[in-house]
Design a protein around this nucleic acid. Structure first.
Length: 361
DNA sequence: TGTGAGTCAATATA
DNA sequence: TATATTGACTCACA
């Protein structure tokens, strides 16, 4: 209702986002998915007309919504738009109308292009020029997309397990050993960290409340989504602080600091970094065949994230070794491991600075 | 300068 | 064909 009020008062979307109460992003995306499927409406159309986003972004957003308190103002915008859309009684009708218009326009183009003698698809696809296939008039080249092979990904993941925040030197080495550009390696680490973090949001929610994406037990509670409150990876507090932490079933101590290295937890579980090979050459050596000690050391996080992403509906994380624990127990272990890794990370950072006054603890 | 957040868009997959 | 994945990019921030 407050949304409707804002809308009728002519506020901009940014102002509405700023004024918006806390929204249940999971409930919103769940409902949006439901409405889209029920009415046979595509993500592309929805994204372009309602959210101003591309299909890929919409897919990502619907599949892996971040909890409200983890979102920046900009990140909250699509959710506010979705909420408004859901509140609009004519929302579906309007989108259906758009769909019909698009179809009409497509048919029109197709008809005219057929009479011209070339296909619509070809005409549409011709807007982008990849190297080697550019149009005569436009010399601007488009870089071909880099597609990393499974071996390269494997090696990068192993490197990540050993060092989620590699030094420039390590990046250089990785790049040369894998025959990749350093920027590709840098990008890969950025993306991987970011995407793992997102998976962890979901895991935490599931561990804390047993609800969330994939669970059919009603809308994920905000308490559940707040479970990651202390997990601000940027080290900043979001608006929900003391009061939003109340009722958390998870200890928040040092959680913020743990963020950076929480992904190494599995490594710790697998026996700690000193007991396993951690050198770069181990990561890339022969792209580490199965059974090598490097492969073993790398199993931890890898299996954790793989498992979590492939079966997000299940809240059970199977540790790299040892018996299956209940999610809560596992969660506690994860957090302890994360704290440990945080300490290791800080020590490593400190070690790289000669002047003790620069050490950050 | 490095990082996280958000997004695009090419490509893979269902 | 629709949706999912993912490398690359921009921007803000410290």
């Amino acid at each position: 209702n407050r949304m409707k009020l804002c809308l009728s008062s002519g506020l901009s979307i940014q102002e509405m986002v700023a004024m918006s109460p806390e929204l249940d992003t999971y409930a919103i995306t769940k409902k949006v998915k439901e409405v889209l499927t029920d009415n046979n409406l595509g993500q592309r159309l929805f994204g372009e007309t309602i959210l101003g986003l591309t299909q890929g972004s919409v897919s990502d957003l619907l599949a892996r919504p971040k909890p409200w308190h983890k979102l920046s103002l900009k990140g909250r915008e699509p959710f506010v738009r979705m909420q408004l859309w859901l509140q609009d009684p004519q929302s579906v009708e309007k989108l259906m109308h758009m769909k019909r218009l698009e179809k009409k326009a497509y048919m029109k183009r197709r008809l005219s292009s057929l009479s011209d003698g070339h296909s619509v698809d070809g005409a549409l696809a011709g807007s982008d020029y990849v190297q080697g296939s550019q149009s005569p008039g436009q010399q601007q080249l488009k870089k071909p997309r880099v597609v990393l092979g499974p071996e390269e990904k494997e090696a990068l993941k192993k490197a990540y397990q050993q060092k989620p925040y590699p030094s420039p030197k390590t990046i250089e080495e990785l790049a040369s050993q894998l025959n990749l550009k350093t920027s590709t390696v840098i990008n890969w680490f950025h993306n991987y960290r970011s995407r793992i973090r997102r998976e962890l949001f979901i895991e935490e929610i599931q561990a804390a409340g047993g609800v969330g994406p994939g669970s059919e037990g009603g809308s994920p509670s905000l308490r559940g989504s707040k479970s990651g409150e202390g997990d601000s990876c940027d080290g900043t507090e979001s608006e929900g602080t003391a009061e939003t932490r109340q009722g958390l079933g998870i200890g928040l101590e040092d959680h913020r600091g743990a963020c950076k290295d929480h992904d190494m937890e599995a490594e710790s579980e697998a026996g700690g970094s000193n007991s396993s090979p951690t050198q770069l050459d181990c990561v890339t050596s022969g792209l580490s065949g199965p059974g090598s000690s490097c492969g073993q050391a790398g199993l931890g996080l890898f299996s954790l994230t793989e498992a979590s992403s492939s079966s997000s509906a299940s809240s059970t994380n199977i540790p790299a070794s040892g018996p299956v624990r209940n999610p809560r127990d596992n969660n506690l272990r994860k957090k302890k491991a994360a704290n440990l890794n945080n300490i290791i990370h800080r020590l490593e950072k400190a070690a790289s600075k000669e002047d003790p006054s620069e050490w950050e603890f």
